[in-house]
Amino acid sequence: MKHGTSLANTPAMAQQDALHVSLFVEDELLRKGLQKQLSELAIVRLAHSCATLAELSRVLSQGRTDVLVVSGSRTAALRACLSGRSGPTPRVLVLLDESQLTSTTAVNALPADGFLLREEVTEQTLDRALAQLARNEMPMPLRLGRRLVDSLQETGRGRFPLSPLTERERETLMHLTEGLSNKQIARQLGISDHGVKRLVGNILLKLGTPNRTAAAVFALEAGLLTDPPSGAAAARGERR
C-alpha cells in the first residue's frame, strides 16, 4: 500500500462512532502491520498512513483525524507540526519502545493522550486503546503505570508529581478540585474542550493518578495547590 492511502472498513458499530485514524510511524514494517490491524477494527472508519512530516501536515490540515498513532521517536516532529496548527487537535496515541520506559520524566514530556508498548501492539490492544481514547480516557500499559507509581513512592511517598506541573496544568488541577466539568474548565481558560482533555491527561500522568477525582484528592492532600487560579471564585458562583 502506498503512503498516504486510506483504508476503508465496514464498521459493525454505528457510523458516527467510528474513528478516523492517522499513522505517523517511521518503521515501514511496523507501519504496514498497523495498517492491516486497523483495517480489521470496527471502531476505525478510515485510516491514513503518513511516512513523512509533509504527508502528516496535509492529512491533519483536512481536520478529519480523530486519533493520531505515532511512534515515540517521531514525537519531536509531531510537536513541531501541531504547534503551528489551528482548529481541532487529534488525540495522540504514542507507541513506546521498551527502552523508553526507563525514564518517566521523558514519558511525561511526550505530547500524548495515551500510550501503548510497541512490543504489545495487537488488534486487541489497539482496539482497547482507541476505545479508551474515544471515551476520553488515557490508555496506559500496566508496566508504565507501575513505573509511575514506583517513581511517586521514591519521590517522597507520592507527595509530589513526577515532574513539575505547568502553570496551565495547575490552573486546570485547581478547577478539578472545584468539581468543574471539562466544558466549564474550557470556558474558564478560554481553550477548547480537547485542550482541557489533554491538560487533564498530562495531570493524571504526572501525578500517577487513575482519574480526575483521584488527582483532585491527591492535590488537596499533598498540598500541591496554594493560590487558586483567577476565575475559580467565578466558577464557584456559576455552579450555584
Rank of each mutant, 00 (worst) to 15 (best):
H175A: 14
L29W: 04
L95F: 08
T65S: 15
T172C: 15
L46T: 09
L173H: 03
H48D: 06
Q62A: 13
G195P: 05
Q188R: 15
S39W: 02
G156E: 10
T89R: 12
L82F: 10
P164Q: 00
E26P: 03
L207V: 05
L68P: 07
A54L: 13
G4P: 04
Q15P: 00
V149Y: 05
D193A: 08
I203V: 14
T65R: 08
R64G: 04
R212W: 11
R147P: 00
L110S: 04
D227L: 13
L7W: 00
I43S: 08
N211D: 15
E40K: 03
G4S: 02
S163R: 12
F160C: 07
R74W: 10
S22C: 06
D127H: 13
L78K: 07
R74T: 10
L7V: 04
F24Q: 02
R64L: 14
T172P: 06
A129Y: 04
E171T: 02
A214E: 12
S151A: 12
G63T: 07
H48V: 03
S86Y: 02
C50I: 06
M138G: 00
R187N: 13
G145I: 07
D17I: 00
R135H: 11
A18C: 15
P88H: 06
N136F: 12
P164H: 01
E55L: 12
L144K: 02
V196Y: 05
L95K: 00
G84D: 05
R118V: 09
L19D: 03
K36M: 08
E28R: 12
V70N: 10
V217W: 02
M138W: 04
P88L: 06
F115K: 06
E167I: 01
H175R: 07
K183E: 15
D27W: 00
I185T: 14
L162V: 09
P90D: 05
L95E: 02
Q35T: 03
R135C: 12
L220R: 15
L204V: 14
T122A: 02
L116V: 09
T10L: 08
V44Q: 03
I43K: 02
L224T: 10
E98D: 14
S57G: 12
A134W: 08
V92I: 15
S99F: 05
Q188K: 11
